[in-house]
Every structure is written in C-alpha cells, then in structure tokens.
Design a protein around this nucleic acid. Sequence first.
DNA 1: TTGTAGGCGTTATCAA
DNA 2: TTGATAACGCCTACAA
Lengths: 343, 343
Amino acid sequence: MKLSRASLHDVAAHAGLSLATVSRVLSGSTYSIREETRKRVEQSARELGYRPNAIARALATNVNRTIGVIIGDITDIYFAELVRGVEDIARSQGYMTVICNAERSPVQEMAYLRALHGQNVAAILLAGGYYPDSDQNQDLVETIQEVAREVRVTCLTDRHIPGIPVVTVDIHSVTYDITRYVIGLGHKRIAYVRGPDGFSVSLDQQRGFEDAMHEVGLDASWQLSGGFGLEYGRQAATFLLANALPDAIIAASDDVAVGITSTLRQAGIAVPGGISVAGIDDAKYSQLLDLTTVRLPAYEIGATGAKLALGIRGNHKTPRTIIAHRVIVRGSTALGTTVGSQP
Amino acid sequence: MKLSRASLHDVAAHAGLSLATVSRVLSGSTYSIREETRKRVEQSARELGYRPNAIARALATNVNRTIGVIIGDITDIYFAELVRGVEDIARSQGYMTVICNAERSPVQEMAYLRALHGQNVAAILLAGGYYPDSDQNQDLVETIQEVAREVRVTCLTDRHIPGIPVVTVDIHSVTYDITRYVIGLGHKRIAYVRGPDGFSVSLDQQRGFEDAMHEVGLDASWQLSGGFGLEYGRQAATFLLANALPDAIIAASDDVAVGITSTLRQAGIAVPGGISVAGIDDAKYSQLLDLTTVRLPAYEIGATGAKLALGIRGNHKTPRTIIAHRVIVRGSTALGTTVGSQP
DNA sequence: TTGTAGGCGTTATCAA
DNA sequence: TTGATAACGCCTACAA
C-alpha cells in the first residue's frame, strides 16, 4: 500500500501551523520556537511518519552532505582500505560517503564524475591510476576540470592536472626503496613483474625499479609485464620456471607476489631459500604469509584526501601531499649469495 | 573562479527559445522538435557548458535512476563480488550504483537506509548478515519496513521480514555439504571454526555443521568461536596447536582457512597430510592456494538481487530466491585414516 | 512545433 | 514567535 510520503506541507496541515514554522522545527534550525509549538510539530511529524526529502532539501540549499569516491577496482583491497579512510573522516563530519566502482574504465570514471556532479555532492575523490596514453584520457582530464569548476575534486593518485590537488604515495620511491633493499641483500639478478601495461602506476613503479638498479650498475631489463592480480603472479612464475630463474623477484603487488611464491613453491623452489620475493601493498594477509613488502598507506591516503576535500586540513590548495610508505621486512626475502649487507 | 553553473533557464535565454523547448531537447524526450531548433539548443548548451542538475530532475520527476547497495564490510571480497553483480545489471539498465559500507553496524545500516530513502533511490539492496539478538535489531527491522513502504528494499542475506524479498545462498546447506564431504573422506575428529558470535550467518553455518555431524553420529562440539578474518584462523590454529589437534578443520571462510593452514604449516603440520582444512567462499586466491572450499555465488546474488529490485526478473514478490552453491574439491583436504570413501 | 505556467518538497527572506 | 511567499532547477500538462 505504498502511501505517498508525508511532506512538510502535510505535517503543517496536520499541526495547524505554517509550513515555515514546521520547516524550522524539523530542519533543526536554531530558530527560537515556542516549546509548545515545537512539541506539536514533532508530534504531528511522528504521527504522519514524516521523513525529510533529501532531494528537495539539496535543491533548496544547494548543498548535499555527501562525498563521492570513485575507485578503480572494488575487488582490490587497497581501495577498500582507502575507502575506509574516507568514510571515517566523512562520517565524523556528518557526511555520507557513496562509493562508485569504475573498474578502471575512463568512460565509467567520466560517467560517475558527471553523475556525482549532478548529485551536487560536496566533494569528489578520484582514486586509482590511469592510462596516460589512452584515447580517452584527454576527455577524462577535460571532464575532471569541468566538474572541478563547481565541486571540489581531489585526486588520490599521482595525476598532474592544474588546480586539482593530489594525495598520494610516492610510487617511484616505493619501488626504488624495495629494490634497493633487495639489492642490499646481495641479490644481483633481479626480475621485476610489472603492473598493467601503460598504466600510470606501472610506469612510476618501473622507473623506480630501473633507477635503483642502474644506480648500482645492475641490469634492469629483466621485466615481465602483467597486472595486479594473483593470476599474473602465477603466469610470471610459470614463465620464469620454464626459462631462467632470477635470484630475486619484485612484484607490482602483494597479490602478484603471493601468486609467484605459491607457484614457485609448488615447483619445489624454496622462497626465500632459492629465490627472494617481495611485494607491494602490505595487504592484510601479508603478515601471515610472511611476505616482505612495502606498506602503502591506503587508509591514510583516503583520510587525508577527505580532510583536504572537506576543508578540515589545508585549504584545498595544497597541490601535492605525499603520504609516507615503509618497507616491511619479513621472511620472503633472504641474503643473497654475494654479499651480506645490512637489512 | 567557481562560475555558477548554467541552468536550463540560461540555455533558453542564450538560444532565444523557451524553457520548455530546451528542456525537451536536453532531457532526451521523444518529443518532435524541429531539427534546426534542436541544433540551436545543443549548440547553446555546449557553449554554456550546461550540465543537468540531477537533483532538480529527481525532484521534478520523482525518480532517481540510482540503486543503493548497503554492504557489511568493504574489506571482504565476498561483498566486492556481490557489488560487481549489482553494478553490471544496474548499468545495463541505465542505473548508477552507490555503495554504502555499513561496517556491520546496525546503526550505520539504519543511517544509510534513511539516507538512501531520502535520496529517493529506485531500490535498496541490503547485503550482509545481522545480529538477531542485538538491541538494535528490532529498530533496524522497523526501519527496513518503514523504508520499504516507499522504496523497494531487497535483502541479500537470509532475513525473515514480511514483505521483504530475499536473495541468498542456503547457508545451512553450505556448511552441511562441506562437512559431509569432509566426513566422507573418513575424518571423524572434526573441528569447526565459527564466524562472529551471535551473527546470523554464523548461526546458520553452525547448525549446518552440527546437523551433518550428528547425522552420522559424530560429536559436533569441537567448535572455536572466531570471525571471518585471517587473524581468527591464526588464533584458532594457535589454540589447537597448544591443546589437541583434530583430523580436519572446517572454517567459516576462506580467509580463516588460509590463516589456519599457514599457521599449521609453519608449525610443521602438513596440510592435508596431517590435517585437512576446508574453507567457505572460493575467494580468488583459493584456487591458487589449492584450498578445498564451497563456492558462494556472490556475483550471482548481487545480480539476481538487482534484477529483482529493478523488476527485470520476477515481480519483486518472490519471497525467497536461493542461489546454488557448490563444493569445490581441491588439495587442502585428503582421505582420512579410517575410511576410503568417495570424494 | 513551441510556449506558458504550475508543481515537486525545502529553505530562506520578509513581514506581521 | 509565526506566517506568506519567493526561490532552487527541472518536467509536463495544457495552450497557442
């Protein structure tokens, strides 16, 4: 019996008061209202089961206490943690968070950007890398700029768009640091399993790896292209097993590292005895699996982005905020044959 | 320079046409419009950078082409897959999906329910179990019923609320089936690591385990309370190692099973040689880790729920839709000592 | 084919 | 302290 929902108008009629008065009571405005009147309004509202219409309210006030987060892949634990960071801050400020899963598609990112803009959200957080050379990237950048003229857009990945603040980890340093650590263990023949081809994060990671290798005069050309999922780890390991094995492998993500490790072990190769393996993320299972990795502060990135966007921190002008990462040394890497360097 | 956004009114003025005509062109209505007029409107809209205001549109039409999903834990891969199912269907029907992460809190579920209701979404999908005996459960049920009078609410877990359709897996059978499978391998001393205490899913699982054990006259009292995360698996395994070890362990989730398995192996216990371990979920890593488990059709549940809610399937009256699960036999379980039964 | 005007549910600005 | 009434931006009979 889908009754049509009671409006302010109905409550006013029921209470024998004006619309304005009822609105003042029910919108929690700090207006002075006679106590008895207030009571009467609340009573009527309750009897009629009144629920404010957020849409109408948003139209009238032109503010919507909602913050939108567009993420690259809901299946990736990195984004899950990032979202939790956003939500905690948003909730503490009385904002609701809506999550949009773009599945790493620029087309969908644009659609969500438009949709959130249309919803008049207070802020939009755009998380996840991009394909700099893709056909749609230019469109996407334009859409971002367009939307950003009317709502605060913050990028939670390292994009360089004038006027759009960025909160991110320094991806180049992440791979640089883990590579240096592995080199420090004495390994020389180090292979690197990349993320998706042409993806911004992959490119930054790759440069980090190469810079670290070149800096000590090692060959950085042993690279396998892949992705961030487990299956790429298995593929890479299978390929290496069928060809030649390195001393150590650095993977684009913990998932990939796990795929590599379990495939190697199934083939009878000890990790770290035979080959050292390191990942990137510090996913929740990594500690348990004793995986050496780099902790990416996903939660903090989300939280900091939300603070920035909501104006609790900085003035949304800070162009680039870097959140610190940290190499986490665990048991999937061990000293190489050549040197006994410090961890 | 936050220009105030161009409205239909502005476009009309710019094009020298009436508001109505412009609206008809820009809202994609199937009205007959002179081609030249249409061109002129589109031109003006482009020049002014017009973007429709979804809020105003929703207010005027009283329809909002968005569907809301409230999930229990964004960190849990089960919900990620479920959300993907919802999104695929929603997108195919031209709906946008917003995800709300309630973190298994009834209070937050209520808040999101209210908020989505206020947003006038086309449908709300409520996924994730609940605490039947918690203080807030009654409030939550009432909120659901209240909201459901005005927007289609569908539960994606086995809740029994009059008038609210349910799409779910038969959880009791899930544990029953995996337990029977493990029993069939010849194991007798079987321990069960539960989900969170008092949680609906845990209770159903537990009954499934107990029924299967009792049916063949085995003792079902070897249970450890826990949760769905990795850490509970490690805790449980640590406890068992310190006390007595069973022949087989059935875990409330794949994460828990992985926690158990790696902890046991680190302690030198072979899996499945020493102890068989089985999980529930069939998470994406389970195949790689060769874990025996039960495949929970999260994606299908999401997709079916969305179809139901959007009226593409059934008439939203089907009270209870069960999606099939399936035991996936892999290498973490092996024949027990007593019997050589069929897999 | 195009235009006029009323309404969607709220808030906010004036008066009273 | 309360009440009219004009926005907010858009859609849609109804008229022209």
